[in-house]
């Protein structure tokens, strides 16, 4: 056994070049399309005051229910408010609620999931509570929570987050349970790494991929839930235009003046579609089993 092993005979494979924008679009057309559509909606939400809009809450009783025209691009509603301006400003509520719920429920859900996956004796207690929350449809739970408080964007975000958190907690718990059995985690334990550092350096970074995908779906679902809450009058107050309450106000007239409902509905659908496309694309790009295919 005195044979000296030869110097490294196998050569290091070349480093893969970083993809450019064009390759990104070619490889992941769904991500590109979803991101582009979402980009347009984000642009609208940010720059709403400069997109030829007027005050979305300004009443003009003389100019009620005008059909779409050069002056009122999407027409006016039964109080004479400009539907185009209301739809543009409404994008803000949808996006803020969607992103905030995705962030909040991801953060809380990840914390609960990690605790549940690591502290075994707490696991069954936490997971039964999560099961209980999940057994109530998220919309009903959000309506019930909104009934306890007054309508505001902040309360809508909290109510929908409570309803969506169990999904994240379940996902992260599963990922943590499988990651903590990984040989690299065991090697880290054998290398004397303490539990908080193992969670921070070895577990959490590897939950980002599934969490990102889940967060996009939650974002889309939260936008729809927000619209439903506003539609039934349990969401944002009527003074804040949101796609849900524009549709709710147009509902009574939808057979004679369908455009009041039509425009916010189209924007809501396109935005949800954009977020879902992004989520599907990310799932394909981040899932190692699917990523191998060319």
């Amino acid at each position: 056994m005195s044979v000296t092993s030869p110097a490294l005979p196998d050569v290091l494979p070349p480093i893969r070049r970083r993809g450019r924008l064009r390759t990104l679009i070619r490889r992941n057309p769904t991500i590109a399309m979803g991101a582009a559509l979402l980009g347009v909606v984000v642009f609208i939400a940010i720059f709403a005051p400069w997109l030829g809009t007027v005050d979305p809450t300004a009443l003009a009783p003389a100019k009620r229910i005008r059909p779409p025209s050069e002056i009122y691009w999407f027409g006016t509603d039964m109080l004479g408010r400009d539907v185009y301006s209301r739809v543009m400003f409404g994008a803000r509520v949808s996006l803020i609620v969607g992103f905030a719920v995705a962030l909040l429920s991801s953060a809380i859900g990840t914390f609960i999931g990690v605790v549940s996956g690591y502290v075994r004796w707490l696991d069954s207690v936490i997971m039964r509570v999560m099961d209980g929350l999940m057994s109530i449809p998220p919309i009903l739970l959000a309506i019930a929570l909104m009934a306890l408080t007054r309508g505001s964007v902040q309360n809508v975000i909290i109510a929908i987050s409570v309803a969506e958190t169990p999904r994240v907690a379940r996902l992260i718990r599963g990922v943590v349970l499988s990651l903590r059995e990984q040989p690299y985690v065991e090697a880290a334990i054998a290398s004397g790494t303490r539990v908080p550092k193992i969670i921070w350096r070895h577990i959490l970074p590897n939950t980002i991929a599934p969490l990102t995908v889940q967060a996009t779906y939650i974002c889309a679902s939260a936008m729809i839930t927000e619209a439903i809450l506003s539609f039934i009058g349990a969401g944002t107050p009527p003074t804040v235009p949101s796609w849900g309450n524009i549709m709710a106000e147009g509902r009574a007239l939808w057979q004679v003046k369908p455009y009041i409902v039509f425009f916010p509905a189209v924007f809501l659908s396109v935005t949800v579609l954009a977020v879902n496309l992004l989520g599907d694309g990310l799932r394909d790009a981040l899932d190692p089993r699917l990523a191998k295919r060319l």
Partner: peptide, 9 residues
């Protein structure tokens, strides 16, 4: 460990 793929983060 055995598996050189899962034994490195």
């Amino acid at each position: 460990f055995q598996d050189p793929f899962s034994s490195l983060n």
